[in-house]
């Protein structure tokens, strides 16, 4: 298949990892943190005193050379996992992260069995 080859070739251009600039990283981190004193707002969107403080702390930590993950774990240590909008993969979140895939495969299985049972083959 000529087209398939070309497609694969073209696609190899894309196989490069995604990177954020420092500035963008900052906003990404803001957005992934819950503003604890607000009703379901993230740090980036909130105007509250708490959010302002956390923002400056994040900026400081990034300047100190911490990476995204280290900033999260620093804040989670102080405020608990409740502050993270993306729950880290650990004992209490395996089900959360893996169940969707199990359901997806289960759905495929049910669909497959249903179709197997009820398919009419052309004579």
């Amino acid at each position: 298949m000529k087209y398939t080859k070309i497609l694969i070739l073209l696609f190899s251009f894309f196989i490069l990892s995604h990177s954020y600039s420092d500035e963008k990283m900052k906003y990404k981190i803001y957005k992934n943190l819950r503003c604890l004193v607000c009703q379901g707002q993230n740090i980036g969107d909130s105007n509250s005193e708490f959010a302002q403080t956390i923002k400056t702390v994040i900026n400081d930590k990034l300047d100190e050379g911490l990476n995204e993950r280290e900033v999260y774990s620093f804040l989670a240590e102080k405020y608990g996992d409740w502050i993270l909008y993306k729950p880290p993969l650990k004992n209490n979140s395996y089900v959360l992260w893996l169940l969707p895939y199990v359901i997806f495969i289960l759905g495929a299985l049910i669909l497959f069995i249903f179709l197997r049972k009820n398919t009419i083959h052309k004579k």
Binding site: L36, V37, T53, V57, L75, K78, Y79
Partner: peptide, 13 residues
């Protein structure tokens, strides 16, 4: 005065 140190204590308000 910046509130930053308090974050180390897990202060939120």
């Amino acid at each position: 005065n910046t509130g930053k140190k308090s974050v180390d204590f897990g202060v939120y308000g």
